[in-house]
Each structure stands twice: as C-alpha cells, then as structure tokens.
C-alpha cells in the first residue's frame, strides 16, 4: 500500500485548515460592532405542524419578563469584552460577553452573576442570528435576528 499520497492528503488538509484560520475572520471579531434587532421568531414548536411564526411585541415582552433577557433594540459589542444594550440610544445595561466552543456559543455575564447562553446560528458582515430556548406558552426555540448598523449611520443616530 502506498502511504505517500495518504500522508500528503492529510498534510494538505491540515495546512489548508491553518490557512483558513489565518485567512477567515473569526466569529469573535465578526461580532464586534452595533447590531439592531430586526426579528424575533419561534423557529421550532413541539406541537402541530407549525415550523415557525413571528413573535409580536406583546409576546416578546412576556418572554422578556419571565426569563432573564433584555428588551434592548441595539446590542453593541465592544472589543474590550463588554456589551452595551441600548434602547433609543440610551444604555440600558453593560455586561461582559465572550464566545465559546467553536464560535457557536455567545455567553453573556450580567453584573448580578447571571449567565445567559445563546447559540450563534450565523454571524456575517451584515447579519447576526442567535437562538435561545423558551418554554413559555409554547415550547420552542426563539430565533433573534440582528442587522449590523453601519458605523457612519450609528454615529449620525447618536
């Protein structure tokens, strides 16, 4: 059995992985900046045939009231590891954030030692999608979608 090509294949895979790590932006740096909430959605429900529906403002308020989650409209991820929740340009809360796993878990540390974990479904230049579990009224996964606020626009807003 010729082992050369097999060794070469594995070596190339590892080199390619290393190159990708250097070339691609990590979720930790992609998430930096200001993000505006654009949608809350139940993605998966455990009854009926429903696979997803939008959450209105009242439902959102109820979810926020019963679990430790905030009602901010804008999330600002700072490079120093702090996260500011803004509502109509006013800072509602400052907390610590970090990304764990392979970049798929967003951990938020509140000042009262409460930790929230969100699953990062997608983070790109323009969009951030996170999920958290909710068992209020209907059990399911709540998907939050954010849109990046361009730097200039954000400065103008302030």
């Amino acid at each position: 059995m010729r082992l050369g090509p097999i060794y070469l294949f594995f070596a190339l895979l590892i080199v390619a992985s290393g190159w990708l790590l250097l070339d691609q932006e990590s979720p930790e740096s992609l998430i930096l900046g200001e993000w505006e909430e654009v949608a809350w959605k139940y993605e998966k429900l455990d009854h009926g045939d429903m696979m997803g529906f939008d959450i209105d403002k009242l439902q959102k308020q109820e979810i926020c009231k019963n679990i430790i989650i905030h009602e901010a409209e804008t999330w600002r991820f700072n490079p120093d590891g702090t996260l500011s929740f803004l509502d109509e340009n006013e800072i509602k809360e400052n907390l610590k954030w970090n990304i764990k796993g392979r970049g798929h878990i967003l951990e938020l540390h509140h000042k009262n030692n409460i930790v929230e974990d969100y699953q990062v479904v997608e983070v790109t230049e323009d969009e951030l999608v996170v999920q958290f579990n909710s068992d209020l009224q209907v059990r399911g996964i709540v998907k939050m979608t954010f849109k990046r606020i361009p730097k200039k626009q954000y400065a103008q807003k302030i």
Partner: peptide
C-alpha cells in the same frame, strides 16, 4: 458530523477548527 455541517453551511473558519480538533 459538525465538520460536515459547517462545510455545508460554508462556515470555513469553524470547519477548520473542528478539523484541527479531530487531527
């Protein structure tokens, strides 16, 4: 399984990390 999923989603950074972990 995660490696396959990340490749399918085009998440190359996460895919590379998982591949290195397996290695």
């Amino acid at each position: 399984a995660i490696l396959a999923q990340e490749i399918a989603k085009g998440n190359w950074y996460q895919g590379a990390i998982v591949l290195i972990w397996i290695f």
